[in-house]
């Protein structure tokens, strides 16, 4: 089984079917590029993979383990009326984390934000596997670069630190100090890796878009996600800044990071990706190596899309 495998992702917004059964798999250290015209569901897919949206149906495997499964589609509702169909496989045993067994059957129609506590817990415990870099950076504007990168890691340490009196013991305090020091050092190293070693004390508003995006990448990396997702990381940037961000992503590949990159940069997809997926209307219309997808596309839709993007490059 692949390092990361995602099966049958479905997602509706109300009556609009946005994702209609997406499958993808990725080996460790590989880069997957997702291309496709706007509105084809690329963002929604990444958001589902990062649990910013709860898919209606999906099975997600990481390192051979089924880390997340859900099926709230109508067919599942019909066959399995009083379970919420969230399951988690651990140690080869299928644990049904069915939220309250006595939940009324119409809970299927509950609004998406009304997800059960068990579900939220499960999701929160799996979040750390995934990182996300947004189109609009979403840095914390009131923190400097260093704090943007260290914040989550420090909070994570504190969340797992001893509770109560133990927390204030000499040893715990010393350990904490040491840990915070290490997080700072790690952040500095990461910021140097993305070429921002000089900007530790700058605020996001003092940086160019490309620099901000590189901070966002360092911020995601410090948590050491297994899969790092990028949603059009350069579409808000002009060409020069785009290049510096894409270079960082290329460097990350050399470091062995497994990544999924939604992009409109076809040259980047061709050169850096190990696999390319072309999405159209919520399905995977075409997939393969960059060579297969770009040089020998099978689907007419892919051909049309590629021709269109060639044209827009020529126009520039």
């Amino acid at each position: 089984m692949a390092f990361y495998q995602v099966n049958n992702v479905y997602k509706n917004f109300g009556d609009v079917k946005v994702l209609k059964g997406i499958n993808l798999e990725l080996d460790e250290g590989q880069v997957l590029a997702i291309i496709g015209s706007s509105g084809s569901g690329k963002t929604t897919l990444l958001r589902c993979l990062n649990f910013l949206e709860i898919p209606d149906k999906a099975d997600i495997y990481l390192k051979g383990e089924n880390i997340f499964s859900i099926d709230n589609t109508d067919s599942a509702a019909a066959s399995n009326a009083d379970e919420s169909n969230i399951s988690e496989v651990e140690n080869g045993k299928n644990i049904q984390t069915d939220s309250e067994k006595n939940q009324p059957t119409h809970a299927k129609k509950a609004k998406p934000e009304k997800i059960s506590k068990e579900m939220r817990k499960l999701i929160d415990s799996k979040r750390g596997h995934f990182g996300m870099v947004f189109q609009s950076f979403n840095l914390f504007p009131h923190f400097n670069v260093l704090k943007n990168v260290t914040l989550a890691a420090k909070l994570k340490y504190d969340a797992h630190a001893p509770k109560g009196f133990a927390r204030w013991s000499k040893e715990a305090k010393a350990a904490r100090k040491q840990a915070m020091q290490e997080i700072n050092e790690k952040a500095v190293a990461l910021l140097e890796r993305v070429g921002l070693g000089e900007k530790l004390n700058s605020y996001p508003c003092e940086l160019s878009g490309g620099q901000q995006q590189r901070v966002a990448i360092a911020r995601a990396l410090i948590l050491q996600p297994d899969i790092l997702c990028f949603d059009e990381p350069t579409s808000a940037l002009d060409p020069e800044l785009t290049r510096e961000v894409l270079k960082v992503i290329r460097d990350l590949k050399k470091d062995g990071h497994t990544m999924i990159v939604v992009t409109h940069e076809m040259q980047f997809a061709k050169k850096v990706a190990d696999k390319v997926i072309f999405m159209a209307d919520g399905i995977v219309e075409e997939e393969g190596t960059p060579q297969q997808v770009f040089e020998h596309p099978v689907s007419e839709k892919t051909k049309a899309f590629l021709a269109e993007s060639e044209k827009s490059i020529d126009e520039e």
Binding site: N50, N138, A220
Partner: peptide
């Protein structure tokens, strides 16, 4: 407040 601030915190595993 932009939604992105909440989402950034969420994907970083912040409570």
């Amino acid at each position: 407040m932009p939604k992105g601030q909440y989402e950034a915190g969420k994907v970083l595993g912040m409570s």
